[in-house]
Amino acid sequence: MRKSAEPHAEPAYDRTTSQSPVRVVFYSASSWALGAIHYSVCDHFTKLGWIAELKPWEQGYNISEFRSEMEKYDYIVTLPSGGTRPLLNSYGIPREKIILVAHDEEDIIRLLRQEGTPAAFERYAGYGVVSDTLACSSLALGITRVPDVVRLGIEFEHYRRENAPTLTNVGYAATMSRPNEYGVERKRGFLAKEAAELAGLNFSEVSNLPFEKVADFYATVGAVLMPSLQEGAGLPSLEAAAAGRLVIGTPVGHFPRLAYEGLGILAPLGANAFRRFSAEKLRFYKDNPSAYVDRCRSIQESAKMRDWSHVIDDWRDLILNAN
């Protein structure tokens, strides 16, 4: 995983000086999806002339040194569930300096329980979510502050691969199973396997492949299924689209918007309906190679507009519009 540029030793930020760069730090995990997202955002903020850094929350920090270092930044961006508790309770960072970005409904629920009232979300400097459906979930939970939707992007060229000439293998690029706190299975990876088998195709899962190798995984499959019952957004659909693979997913997270933009095929949410629909689509494209190649090329072309360079303004505006 690449690292973002270290902050330069520059004079303290002066809000009265328009030439002063915006200074922002992300307090988050440094690996897997969160690492990929936040390192990329830091890289693109740096290209804007900002000072941006990721501080991995899995590392322990000296309290006084951490608090002193955070004074150099205008805002700290973190997840509601994983980042706010240590920032508030361990390091004494005021809410007014923290920008929340929720990547999952459980992020919001846990912070809501921690704060005890939806009104507490108003005290944070900013509040964003990574999909439209997650914004709806936030409102349904009684949080009256309407979050900004900050779209997720990808490094398109990193995931780009040659299109496959025929469809022979179906992939699944997430954990196969992840029940929520009530025991409801959210990922439903088994449906991807069953649909592939019904279509007479081989099935591969990403399993424990190191994150740095995930892009190569897409070169080994011709389609990627996302049968999730719930997602905050879902990176595999973006990655697979950039790789030029056939993408089929349920209407959760940001996939309804992605499908509308041409990055994949929207499938029904119900288990039986998803299995049947996906198997039919897979059989069609297996039996019609020219249609398969055309669809994959179209999906990959649409994915170019989800390169970070096209969506970074969502994140920039979240920072600039903070209270």
Rank of each mutant, 00 (worst) to 15 (best):
E53A: 11
I63P: 01
K72Q: 06
L79G: 12
R67L: 01
W50T: 04
K72A: 01
K55Y: 15
E69W: 00
V77T: 09
W50Y: 13
E58T: 14
T78K: 05
K72T: 03
I63L: 08
I76Q: 07
E65Q: 14
W50A: 07
I51Y: 06
D74K: 08
Y75R: 12
E65M: 08
V77F: 09
E69Y: 03
P56E: 14
G82F: 02
G82L: 07
Y73Q: 01
Y61N: 10
A52E: 08
Q59V: 13
Y73F: 10
Y73T: 05
S81E: 02
L54N: 14
W57P: 10
K55P: 05
S64I: 02
E53Q: 14
D74T: 07
W50C: 03
E69Q: 04
E71F: 02
S64D: 03
E65T: 11
F66L: 14
V77L: 11
A52Q: 10
V77D: 09
E65D: 14
K55Q: 13
E71I: 03
P80I: 01
Y73P: 00
Q59C: 14
I63C: 06
I76H: 07
P56L: 14
Y75L: 09
F66E: 13
S68H: 04
D74S: 10
D74Y: 07
E69G: 00
Q59D: 15
K72M: 01
E58L: 10
G82T: 02
W57H: 15
M70E: 02
K55M: 15
S64N: 08
Q59H: 14
W50L: 04
G60D: 11
A52S: 15
P80D: 04
W57L: 14
R67N: 04
L54K: 15
E58Y: 12
V77P: 01
Q59I: 13
Y75Q: 06
I76D: 01
L79K: 08
G82S: 09
G60M: 08
M70K: 06
A52G: 09
D74M: 10
S81H: 00
Y61V: 11
Y61G: 12
Y73V: 00
W57A: 11
W57R: 15
Y61D: 05
E53P: 06
I51N: 09
E69F: 07
S81A: 04
E53S: 11
W57T: 12
G60Q: 12
W57F: 15
E69T: 02
S64K: 00
L54H: 11
I76Y: 03
K72W: 03
G82A: 04
M70H: 08
A52W: 10
M70R: 02
I63Y: 00
L54F: 10
T78S: 08
M70V: 02
L79F: 09
I63G: 00
I51A: 01
Y75W: 13
Y61E: 09
I51E: 15
I51H: 10
G82M: 06
R67I: 03
P80A: 00
Y61Q: 12
L54A: 13
E71V: 03
I76S: 04
L54Q: 15
N62S: 13
R67Y: 03
T78R: 04
